[in-house]
Amino acid sequence: MSLSKVNKDTLDKILALQIIVAWAGEGACEPKRLDWWRTDLIDENGGGDLFQRLFPKTYLWASLEAVRQVAIHQDRGRRMDMAKPDAVRTLFFWGFSIDEQLADRLIFHKQNGINPSETLPFPVDIYQAFSKPDFEEAISIPHRKMDFKLVPSGREIVDETLKALDECAKRLAFALLPFSDKYPMPFYRLEER
């Protein structure tokens, strides 16, 4: 995976996947979604209301940024249990260079003030009620089986590592299936050089 500048469309696709997975992972909402983290940061009757009062112009982006940070934190905790936590790539950890580009792209969108649903290619509507079947369909890759092996820290994808970041992100999201009670942290190991 390249350390060079990533194009904006690819960054937007990765951000969209990160955000929908972070949203789906929330469990303090009514009704619960996947319950991987104890948050309710997006729903207008939960944290979304607080963000709207605190940040009237950017509340939609602020709530997405917050739930994404929760997922990044949970992902980091799982990775830190590994022998070489920086030698893997997950949906929420791409290495310093790419993670910085993703953060900068999110800031760019937040400052533009355009509705997130009009800006990012969300495969599900995060402002509607959660449907597990719809979410499964949104992260699935048709006519494809995902091969992974269960290891203590997560699901190690044993498919060939892809060079295209957006395709790699799709496979990482797809490897969340089947859903488990805890965040399963799909990951690729970086190839030894």
Rank of each mutant, 00 (worst) to 15 (best):
D159M: 12
P56N: 10
S140W: 09
R78L: 15
Q18K: 04
T39Y: 05
M80G: 04
V88N: 01
G47F: 02
D40E: 14
V124N: 05
R76F: 06
R68N: 07
P142S: 12
A173W: 01
L177A: 11
K170R: 14
R155C: 03
P178Q: 10
P133M: 08
S63N: 06
P123I: 12
V88L: 10
D81K: 14
W61H: 01
P123G: 11
D181Q: 14
E160P: 00
V124S: 04
E136K: 13
N112I: 07
R76M: 08
D159I: 01
L11G: 01
R53E: 13
Y59I: 07
G113K: 11
S4C: 06
F187V: 00
A169Y: 04
S97T: 15
E156S: 09
M1W: 07
P133N: 06
F93C: 03
P56L: 13
G77A: 05
F130T: 08
A24F: 07
R171H: 10
I139R: 05
Y59H: 14
I157H: 02
E65R: 04
Q69V: 02
E137T: 15
L34F: 10
F122M: 02
E156W: 08
Q128P: 02
K57I: 08
D9I: 15
P142H: 10
S2V: 13
K32H: 13
I139G: 05
D166N: 10
W36E: 04
H143G: 08
K5I: 12
E160S: 11
F108Y: 15
R38G: 03
N45A: 11
M1D: 08
G48Q: 01
E156F: 06
